[in-house]
């Protein structure tokens, strides 16, 4: 016998991952600090390491509320001014 799949359809196309950058040399890195404890510290250190080891440039640090999406203007600025964004630190 048949019963329903309880999930239904997905309304938006599933997100896809961006292509990896072939090299970080000369690429600008932005940090989207979600203001979770130590998030800025962690991502700042990672950015510094990427700059030292791979020739990237730390360009922008933006912040957002941890519980809500970043505003469009912040995402637009990052899209325009950097090639790589570090974000997503949790508790």
């Amino acid at each position: 016998m048949k019963i329903y799949n309880p999930q239904g359809r997905v309304g938006h196309p599933p997100a896809t991952q961006a292509e990896a950058l072939p090299s970080l040399a000369g690429k600008r890195i932005g940090i989207l600090d979600n203001r979770k404890p130590n998030a800025g510290l962690l991502m700042g250190r990672i950015a510094e390491r990427l700059a030292a080891d791979h020739g990237a440039i730390v360009s922008i640090v933006e912040s957002k509320n941890a519980a809500i999406s970043a505003p469009d203007e912040v995402l637009g600025k990052l899209t325009k001014e950097v090639e790589l964004v570090l974000t997503g630190s949790a508790d």
Partner: peptide, 12 residues
């Protein structure tokens, strides 16, 4: 993709 999942499932 998830959109391709069948609407119904066969069970015994």
């Amino acid at each position: 993709t998830e959109s391709d999942l069948p609407e119904m499932v066969d069970v015994a």
